[in-house]
């Protein structure tokens, strides 16, 4: 295991990347990105088995699909810091002629991205397809997907959730970022979804709950627990409780920063709470 401090350094640097990226173009989605930072850093740097370089087919390695594509800043930062493309390229986020589109896409050939996402609710189906291909190919690696909790209001998810359990897609780990927020407000007000853990279990999934989704050790433990439950006839879900905007005090516990960039002053405050570790891009 990489030293926890090393991973924590990546987490803090990723938060700086997210904030600087969205500030630079005065657009993008910092809230969910900051909330999922520990998860994605842990996934790519501690949990997934990855090959050197990028190959679209991803044979012989674990795969990840980001379904809630609007948290592209955290995805791009984690990919760049992992070495999929130069970190300097993070400075092109959302600019014209960039490979770092507002929402992730394969269209510009950015290494690390295997499907476009942004229009919500589609990633789990794609993950299931990739997981089925792995089974056909005799490849025992895993497929990971990430979804927002608000995103589960899209009906296609429930088609996918039903299919994965019904067909024992047990090489799939789908994580729900349960931050309780969406654009128009708390999910409990916009469209209450009830007990998501019970819903996944009722559909036939094995659910691992991670109550501290912004605690790196808890996230790693949850991911490893989920991994240990694969291959047992059930798809595995991680119900990850995170705080939107985590790591920046004025962005936490609100949906206000879902899709809003900080101004110069706010950026300075936010960065001061996340001092540079690995070096800014």
């Amino acid at each position: 295991m990489a030293k926890l401090e090393e991973l924590q350094d990546i987490v803090v640097q990723t938060r700086r990347d997210i904030l600087r990226m969205v500030h630079n173009v005065n657009s993008g989605h910092p809230g969910g990105s900051l909330g999922c930072t520990e998860f994605l850093v842990a996934l790519y740097n501690e949990v997934m088995e990855l090959k050197e370089g990028f190959n679209m087919d991803g044979e012989g390695e674990d795969l990840f699909f980001l379904s809630n594509g609007h948290i592209s800043p955290v995805f791009y930062s984690v990919l760049a810091r992992k070495g999929y493309f130069p970190v300097e390229e993070l400075g092109t986020f959302r600019l014209i002629n960039s490979r770092l589109q507002g929402h992730p896409t394969t269209h510009e050939g950015l290494p690390g991205v295997r499907v476009a996402s942004g229009s919500l609710g589609q990633g789990m189906s794609v993950g299931i397809g990739a997981a089925l291909a792995k089974k056909l190919n005799g490849d025992d690696h895993l497929v990971y997907t990430l979804h927002g909790d608000g995103e589960l209001q899209e009906g296609q998810n429930w088609e996918a959730i039903m299919y994965a359990a019904g067909n024992k897609v047990d090489n799939l780990i789908s994580t729900i970022d349960r931050n309780g927020q969406q654009i128009d407000g708390p999910t409990s007000k916009v469209l209450p979804m009830g007990d998501l853990t019970q819903k996944f279990e009722a559909f036939g999934w094995d659910v691992v709950e991670v109550a501290e989704g912004n605690d790196l050790e808890a996230v790693i433990a949850g991911l490893k627990e989920a991994k240990s439950r694969t291959g047992k006839g059930k798809p595995v879900c991680i119900m990850l409780d995170t705080v939107m905007g985590h790591g920046v005090d004025f962005m936490m516990h609100t949906h206000a920063w879902h899709g809003k960039a900080p101004n110069d002053e706010q950026l300075a405050t936010a960065l001061s709470q996340n001092p540079e570790t690995l070096g800014d891009y």
Binding site: D57, S125, L132, A133, Q156
Partner: peptide, 15 residues
């Protein structure tokens, strides 16, 4: 909808 997504995913792996 799920069928189209699964089909897209199956291509990743050469199907």
């Amino acid at each position: 909808a799920n069928m189209m997504g699964i089909a897209a995913g199956l291509t990743i792996g050469g199907k």
